[in-house]
């Protein structure tokens, strides 16, 4: 067992309609080898034993790839470290006696469901609006190697495709803009020959859905790039700006 003592200030909200508030909790015996979520497990275990309601938070793979975990920790999405998700954040980043604020992602397009759990369905709807290549399942497609793709393009497409859809970009952005998320998807396909035929409609449709969902407008502040656990670059937003401009000017 460890020996860190911490004060947690955690957002509690019974359901979507309830008015929430920050509530203080003390935790002790926290080991520096624990992940942040394991620290919350310890707190929840105690709350259940004490007959209180445990804190609801989204999490699943706990290895930084599913994108389920969120949490605005100590004033930043996914906490103080760069390029990791909350589940990868370990308590050795904190000191004994620290006061840590824990809040849900804040955005009108991500309504709170309960405590620290928010609804990120908007991302799915944006994806459904155009985040795909229209190819049906078929066993007789052309051979995968029939069309070579320059390594640089393929690598850049991968960089964009690394997005885990966690929503940290929205949470970090003072405007609650989802541009980095949308740009990553648009970029991945825009960079690959397979995605080119639908590039214009994709950019137009995904942006339209993004706006419909009520996300804010991108003003190039750049907080998203810094807080993105997968290091998605602002270059992708510039690419979306280009793609969309071209699509808007040439649409019939």
């Amino acid at each position: 067992m460890g020996n860190m003592k911490l004060t947690l200030k955690i957002w509690r909200q019974a359901d979507a309609k309830a008015k929430g508030a920050m509530v203080d909790y003390q935790v002790s015996d926290i080991s520096e080898d624990m992940s942040f979520l394991e620290m919350l497990d310890v707190l929840n275990d105690r709350l259940v034993r004490e007959g209180q309601e445990p804190i609801a938070f989204d999490h699943d793979c706990r290895e930084g790839i599913c994108g389920a975990c969120s949490l605005f920790i100590d004033g930043r999405p996914h906490g103080p470290s760069r390029h990791i998700t909350t589940c990868q954040l370990h308590m050795r980043k904190f000191k004994d006696g620290d006061v840590i604020h824990v809040e849900p992602w804040r955005a009108g397009a991500f309504p709170v469901i309960k405590d620290l759990v928010v609804d990120r369905g908007a991302f799915d709807r944006i994806q459904a609006a155009g985040g795909f290549v229209s190819v049906n399942t078929m066993g007789n497609l052309v051979d995968a190697n029939a069309q070579p793709i320059p390594k640089l393009d393929s690598d850049k497409a991968f960089d964009a495709a690394a997005c885990i859809g966690c929503g940290a970009c929205v949470a970090a952005c003072p405007n609650s803009s989802a541009m980095l998320f949308v740009a990553a998807k648009v970029s991945q396909y825009a960079l690959l020959p397979q995605g080119r035929p639908e590039a214009k409609t994709r950019a137009l449709n995904m942006v339209e859905q993004m706006d419909t969902e009520g996300f804010g407008n991108c003003t190039n502040i750049g907080a998203c790039e810094i807080e993105c656990p997968k290091d998605i670059s602002l270059e992708n937003i510039a690419r979306l700006n280009r793609e969309y401009l071209g699509a808007e000017l040439s649409k019939e």
Partner: peptide, 29 residues
Amino acid sequence: LWRQNRAARPVDYAFAKHNANSKWYSRSM
């Protein structure tokens, strides 16, 4: 932009370290 961006976050953070990820003037246009 200002009006829509304000509306996009109806409930603000109780505690946020904006300076850790962006410049104040970029946020204050």
